[in-house]
Simulated scan of single mutants.
Amino acid sequence: YFNHRRFVVAASADEFIEKQAEGTTLQLNTSLVKDNARDVVFMFPGQGVQFLNMGKGLYEAEPVFRLAMEECAGILKTYLKLNILDIIYPAKEDEAALKKLTNTAYSQPALFTLGYALGKLYMSWGIFPTAFIGHSVGEFVSACFAGVFNLADALKLVATRGKMMGDVAPGAMLSVRTTVEEIQPYLSAEIALAAVNSPKLCVLAGETAAIKKLSDILNKKDILTRLLPTSHAFHSHMMDVVVQPFEDVVKTIRLSAPLIPIASTVTGDWLSAEEATSSAYWANHLRATVLFGKSVQKLLDEQHTLFLELGPGSSAATLTRQQAAGKQVTAIATLEKADTEQSCRSAMKALGQLWLQG
């Protein structure tokens, strides 16, 4: 055991020597470990962060990751009637392929598959979670790992959820950089509060025309907005029609109390045994406002300070830092860049950063 730690990610001896000479990089990848970190929160992001060929380098180089991806893909064929890996890793990377991945019928199973495979990979490296949090569909990955439902049932739910949500009328989602209080006057029968991600970041959902009109209004008031790459208005009134049909499906599977704590993004509190085993909870999950910021705050209040995001991009890690607001926390992304060739390096870098935390 060494208190003074430093790591370098390199593909060759020559690259290692070159990296050793980079003072700035070495300084960032160096630490003095004072306390051995024992608690790691696994975080799983939701829709809107997916990109083509996410994790492809890991799929090609890491057997544990590849086997987990293929296991999920094999189960999903029953429901999707295709190989989800062909959607994630298309033969041709073009607009049509991206549009297909953005379709919620595929993006939800794709994100679950990737998150599950990343979780299995880090566990194989000796990193085990003491708590979970998942944004929207990400909570299903959390629940699977926590033992609420098994992998086959989890994939049945996610595939069914994606198809049902995809069958409703198209809509839009808008990220708005402001507080819940400031956005309340703009909510209506057409505009719903879909998520509260951090103190000054909300997501609205509704009919496409209504969302576009509101975006123009907010931009004129210098309130920053961004349309999210989603196919529908998730967590809004537009999902009401599928809540009961989805609950009927949830009732067909066995639900258990979580073996590892899950911060619920529906309640902003720990997921109780009663909620975890309730078909109504998992059905309303697709309609309820995602209280990600409140759930992260719950984890912070319980003295969790080390977070690992298992999914594409760094949205959950960024939101966690925003929620912490100056409090000393470490939130690490495993697939930071959309550069698919760098996914192995990104995952290794995250592993090194975990080591620096003890």
Rank of each mutant, 00 (worst) to 15 (best):
K81M: 10
L82S: 13
L82K: 11
L82A: 11
L82W: 09
N83W: 06
I84C: 01
L85C: 05
D86E: 14
I87E: 00
I88P: 09
Y89W: 07
K92I: 15
E93F: 01
E93R: 06
E93P: 01
E93N: 07
E93T: 15
E95S: 13
E95K: 13
E95T: 15
A96R: 08
A97V: 15
A97W: 10
A97R: 00
L98H: 02
K99R: 14
K99M: 07
N103H: 15
T104I: 15
T104K: 02
A105D: 07
A105T: 14
A105K: 07
A105Q: 13
Y106D: 03
Y106N: 08
S107D: 11
S107H: 04
S107W: 14
Q108I: 04
Q108F: 08
P109A: 02
P109L: 03
A110W: 12
A110R: 13
A110P: 11
F112L: 08
F112N: 06
F112G: 05
F112Q: 09
L114I: 13
L114R: 03
L114Y: 03
L114M: 10
Y116S: 07
L118N: 10
K120H: 07
K120G: 00
L121T: 08
L121I: 02
L121V: 03
Y122L: 01
S124L: 02
I127A: 02
I127N: 11
P129S: 11
P129V: 00
T130G: 02
T130S: 12
T130V: 03
A131M: 06
F132Q: 01
G134L: 08
G134T: 02
V137F: 02
V137L: 11
V137M: 09
G138W: 06
G138D: 05
E139Q: 13
E139F: 03
V141A: 13
V141S: 11
V141N: 15
V141E: 08
S142G: 10
C144Q: 10
C144K: 07
C144W: 03
F145L: 12
A146D: 03
A146N: 01
G147K: 05
G147T: 12
F149H: 06
N150D: 14
L151F: 05
L151K: 12
A152G: 05
A152Y: 02
A152S: 12
A154F: 03
A154T: 14
L155G: 03
K156E: 00
V158W: 04
V158I: 14
V158S: 09
V158P: 08
V158Q: 08
V158Y: 05
